[in-house]
Design a binder for these strands. Structure first.
Lengths: 110, 110
DNA sequence: CAACATACCTAGGCACCCGACATAAAGCAA
DNA sequence: TTGCTTTATGTCGGGTGCCTAGGTATGTTG
């Protein structure tokens, strides 16, 4: 059973996170809800994928985190883009579009 | 150094192969050249990815192979789509488009 | 005859996504 | 006060599948 409907393509999760955080700083849980919502309920981010991805991005210096308290008195770890993250977002977005364009060129060949 | 320029997204290689073979039966080497050409020199398929992918697809019954001899007297293993392969191509293509559409929806959010 | 292109293939490594699980605290209802 | 659901953070093992780096063989060309 190779892919199940919700499977993400490897490599795209980072881009998704960078883009979503570029719109607004969020904590992990909210981030996964936001991605689902922005994608029209198509893209589901598993927790087992999300947190490792966040640490990866943090280790690469693309995002940073701080602990915060919500209005409901919940401890949350809020992530925000760094300057390097904003630059990486553009690079990754362009790379995605080149790739997706190439895919569409192949798929569209009669 | 996570991704290098030529990296493919996991899962897309199968689709690429199915689509390319739907246009014309080809042997492995020719297939990789054809994918590169169709994609406008963007997508490079490594041999270390190609052959395992072909066996995977064959094991799933989506393609079949036969030995042939080219005009230059070379032994080549020609792959062609099966009926199941043609069906899988449509499913995978649709899945790709749903996914790519969702990605673009997220990336295009202002 | 050497070098290159064509053609097949394998092995090991590693990135990363997933499912399952663990933990905890807040909200709420019975 | 007990117990369920939701919110929230995280870990771990497994598996898929791409990559790099090889190996082998044969035809072509300088």
């Amino acid at each position: 059973m190779t892919h199940r409907k919700a499977d993400l393509l490897q490599g795209t999760l980072d881009l998704l996170i960078l883009k979503t955080l570029a719109l607004e700083s969020l904590h992990g849980w909210g981030l996964s809800k936001r991605i689902r919502q922005l994608s029209g309920e198509v893209l589901e981010v598993n927790q087992g994928s999300l947190y490792p991805a966040l640490y990866r991005l943090r280790d690469r210096g693309l995002i940073r985190s701080r602990w915060d308290i919500t209005e409901e008195d919940r401890r949350v770890k809020v992530y925000e883009l760094t300057r390097a993250g904003r630059e990486a977002l553009e690079v990754e977005r362009d790379r995605w579009r080149v790739f997706a364009g190439a895919m569409e060129r192949v798929l569209g060949t009669a």
